[in-house]
Design a protein around this nucleic acid. Structure first.
Lengths: 131, 131
DNA sequence: CATTAACATTGATGATTGTCAATTTGAACT
DNA sequence: AGTTCAAATTGACAATCATCAATGTTAATG
């Protein structure tokens, strides 16, 4: 079976009626596993929104490592339910955790995943914004 | 103006008719910049799909650091147009690049961003899949 | 207990997305 | 030139998503 990467090299394949063995995959490795891929996609999906990235950034850069919903709500031009919605998505993805103290709820990066999350943010935020 | 983080500490604020100054943001920092947030979100969005993550993984782990569309198409239970569609999204996000050689097109991670992309994948794929 | 304030939840709506079927483009070979 | 095959593109459709308006929940307060 010939590899198309080598198609200029005439092989000794006994060229039948339809040679041209198309694509012998270079790798048929386990690749990724459907479950793992879905899990990872969920996390990236939680990060795939400007509002949510800004929320994370606000939390990560805050003095105490946390921010209350009212602080966050005040930082955006959108209603409080929308912020709540985004917070839920981040929470469901295990990126942030909420702590109710009195009337207020304070969100912080999930304990133990601080650096991981900051790393993801930094990596992508390092990319220059085109001129 | 009292900080609610300190609400248990009685302040000397001349408690008027409505004290209770809600949320004095701990940080009013520039945060992130709308443009930068959108750009980052676009990249995460390109990563927010199991098929696309698997494509990236297949490319990243392949021997020559590239894979042709026919290889990729053969690896999924979906039509060739769908794979083409996902490749376009990854390409538009500047994560992969295509190289047409003969009848075939070979995709690889964008030159110079190899490690960055692999880093993003590794970070998220390290997360244990729940039992 | 009634009220108020902070936050979450629900339901509706317009926009975006992933997939397929059908068609088109473009290169290689006869 | 005509055929064949790899890949991209187009159009359609169901599903998902971000937002808002309205309502529900829970904790502090009078």
């Amino acid at each position: 079976m010939e590899r198309h990467e080598l198609k200029n090299v005439k092989t000794v394949t006994p060229v039948g009626e339809n040679d041209e063995a198309c694509c012998v995959p270079t790798l048929v490795e386990p690749a990724l596993g459907a479950k793992q891929a879905r899990k990872a996609a969920d996390i990236f999906n939680a990060l795939a929104d400007p509002t949510r990235l800004t929320i994370l950034s606000l939390i990560a850069r805050s003095e105490r490592g946390e921010a209350c919903v009212c602080d966050l709500t005040a930082s955006f031009n959108m209603g409080q339910p929308s912020i709540s919605h985004h917070l839920k998505i981040l929470k469901d993805a295990d990126l942030i955790q909420g702590d109710k103290r009195g009337k207020w709820v304070y969100y912080s990066l999930v304990t133990g995943r601080d650096e991981e999350i900051k790393g993801l943010l930094d990596t992508v935020l390092k990319i220059p914004v085109e001129v």
